[in-house]
Nucleic acid binder design. Structure first.
Length: 634
DNA sequence: GTAGGGTTAG
């Protein structure tokens, strides 16, 4: 409401609405409050623009109760104030209250504008509630409000969050229609929609479409987000090697776009997936040179994860120790690192320090604690944490925590207890639970329970190549060949193929990949010669090939899959041939390491001058002087 | 002169 004397006071109102947003973005609510007092003394607070600016200032400073108080006192409640509150509640995680306001707006028949709709859509999208976001979008179009670029970007982000390709494509079509009908063309706005589309296609695993759209953008027009969504797409949903190539192309690009913290994080995720310590270190050096201060926590957390997953958890610790600020993720990333390297005691030490510092302990923290216990064989400790997480920390165990406990009990061979725990679950057991049980059955040779778990997985329609391979191995181990054959034909029938095992080894300048029986590498002859020699020598030391593992193959073409040709053995031989004495050999395998390879490597570690650092899909194995850090807890 | 948006970690 514009007051009667507002005309002569108008310049002051204008300066207030110019200054208040600055208080909001700085979080300087005390200064904002002074300005509010000044406005009241001068009767400026009745100016609707000033009122809106005050509400927004408090909302931006995360003082929603203050914002609400001002809002309730406003004589005329402007839609801008409503919107500021909706956004404010959404930003501080009180989204229910934001939705309550949205409902109130509809009841009081406030004219919802494009900003209101977009705020609610993006609120849902940011919480990965894509279907709800799409629903609001539908409501918006029915209401006759005109979506704009920001609306479209928010909707696409919702589609991306849930991998909704069909709805994403529909939104794409809608965007094309709308863009054509808009007057003139705005490259910057077009680019935002295009970036959102690339991200959506990448998150729906449609990397070809994403890359085609990326290629279609004029090189000069790509901005840092364009590059980042593409790199992040490859890092998470495609070949991580492509992500690193793109990152390198970005640095060399003549229209030089500078990577930001998001870009760096995506590149580090790619390094983590590939265990690429060499490139990870280079990016770390780049980070130190550039100094990503404002978002350093995020980047440092990625560095912790990258170092841990690349086999150097001590470097991860150094990054952690040097951080000036940490959040929950920093702590849990380090704990996960210790966990996957079988250093469970250190993981629990970190957990205790974390508790001592009074940091919030959430469901993920316990998942990480249980994971660490599981990979270090700490059954009783794990059980103890599991039993106390609700009472002592108020964290209710979810299906994933149960799955972790099944894993812990299963690895320790306590299958009956594991099954009893499943029966006691207050929720429906998820596929993760049954996979944990099935894996335990493989190690402890329990065919009946394995069949039960496999049947449950089938009910949940979440059988995959891993399930079939596990079951086939269990049958083979029990010499039930008919069942092995049955599984084999079942796989053929349903078109499920065993994922080919592949291992890669970190060379000084490059990474070399090997598949089963690979003879593509120029050094192949030397590799096989060395392997034969090594096998011969360790046989003399007592190594007996575990031929059960040769029965893995469920594919006729893989009949020649002899133990000596397994990709991890080839990678090891290559590593020995190309590494200087004393330098650790770092191998990564996409599947679980084969049991025979594990045994053979343990023997070989006695006769070579390298530590073998092997990462498989389950954990790290540090193999040295005839023993492995996993101590049998796979 | 006020309100809404895209890319990152456990």
């Amino acid at each position: 409401m514009v007051s009667l004397n507002s005309f002569e006071l108008r310049p002051d109102a204008v300066s207030l609405v110019n200054v208040l947003p600055a208080c909001g973005s700085l979080g300087a609510w005390k200064r904002g409050k002074q300005l509010q007092g000044y406005a009241i003394r001068r009767c400026l607070h009745e100016d609707v623009f000033v009122g809106n600016a005050i509400v927004d200032m408090y909302a931006k400073c995360k003082r929603l109760d203050d914002a609400n108080k001002v809002f309730e006192l406003m004589e005329v409640k402007d839609v801008v104030s409503w919107n500021a509150l909706v956004t404010g509640y959404s930003q501080i995680g009180r989204f229910d209250e934001a939705l309550g306001l949205f409902e109130r707006m509809r009841e009081e028949e406030i004219d919802l504008n494009v900003v209101t709709w977009s705020a609610v859509i993006s609120g849902y999208a940011q919480r990965d509630l894509g279907y709800e976001a799409l629903n609001i979008f539908k409501g918006m179009r029915l209401s006759g409000a005109e979506p704009n670029v920001i609306t479209l970007v928010s909707v696409l982000s919702g589609c991306a969050a849930i991998g909704a390709l069909r709805q994403g494509k529909e939104t794409h079509c809608y965007a094309i229609k709308r863009m054509f009908s808009l007057e003139g063309s705005n490259t910057e706005e077009d680019l935002m929609v295009t970036n959102a589309l690339i991200d959506m296609y990448a998150k729906c695993k449609e990397m070809k479409i994403a890359h085609a759209m990326f290629d279609d953008i004029d090189r000069r027009d790509r901005n840092v987000v364009t590059w980042t969504v593409m790199i992040g797409g490859y890092a998470q949903h495609g070949d991580a090697n492509d992500a690193l190539e793109l990152f390198s192309a970005m640095l060399k690009d003549e229209y030089s776009v500078i990577p930001n913290a998001y870009t760096i994080s995506c590149a580090l995720v790619a390094c983590a997936r590939l265990s690429s310590l060499r490139i990870g270190r280079q990016i770390h050096a780049y980070v130190l040179r550039q100094g990503y201060e404002p978002t350093i926590v995020f980047v440092a957390n990625c560095l912790i994860d990258m170092y841990a997953k690349s086999g150097d958890v001590d470097a991860a610790r150094l990054v952690f120790d040097n951080m000036s600020q940490r959040n929950t993720v920093s702590w849990t990333s380090l704990m996960t690192g210790y966990g996957m390297h079988g250093r469970g005691e250190e993981a629990l030490q970190v957990f205790n320090v974390m508790r001592g510092e009074g940091l919030p302990i959430d469901g993920v923290t316990f998942l990480v604690v249980l994971y660490a216990c599981s990979h270090s064989g700490m059954v009783d400790k794990g059980m103890n944490y599991f039993n106390h997480m609700k009472g002592d920390f108020g964290v209710v165990p979810g299906a994933e925590h149960y799955a972790c406990m099944i894993d812990i009990l299963g690895r320790a061979g306590r299958l009956d207890e594991a099954m009893k725990l499943i029966e006691r679950m207050p929720m429906e057991p998820t596929s993760v639970v049954w996979v944990a049980l099935l894996s335990a059955c493989r190690v402890h040779k329990n065919v009946d329970l394995a069949e039960h778990a496999a049947a449950k997985l089938s009910e949940l329609e979440s059988e995959n190549d891993g399930t079939y391979t596990l079951l086939s191995n269990i049958y083979a181990n029990a010499k039930r060949w008919k069942d092995v054959a049955r599984i084999r034909s079942l796989m053929k029938h349903s078109g499920i193929r065993k994922r080919p095992g592949c291992s890669w080894v970190q060379g000084k300048k490059e990474t070399v990949t090997f598949f089963v029986g690979d003879r593509c590498h120029p050094m192949s002859e030397k590799i096989y010669d060395l392997l034969e020699d090594l096998i011969h020598r360790i046989k003399a030391m007592g190594y007996v090939p575990e031929t059960n593992f040769a029965l893995h193959d469920v594919d006729d073409e893989e009949k020649g899959d002899l133990l000596i040709e397994h990709s991890e053995k080839l990678a090891l031989a290559y590593g020995i041939l190309t590494s200087a004495p004393g330098v650790p050999i770092r191998i990564t395998k996409n599947l679980r390491v084969c049991g025979d390879c594990h045994t053979a490597m343990t023997y070989i570690s006695k006769i070579i001058e390298h530590e073998i650092i092997l990462r498989d899909s389950s954990r790290f194995h540090h193999i040295k002087n005839g023993s492995c850090s996993c101590r049998g807890f796979w």
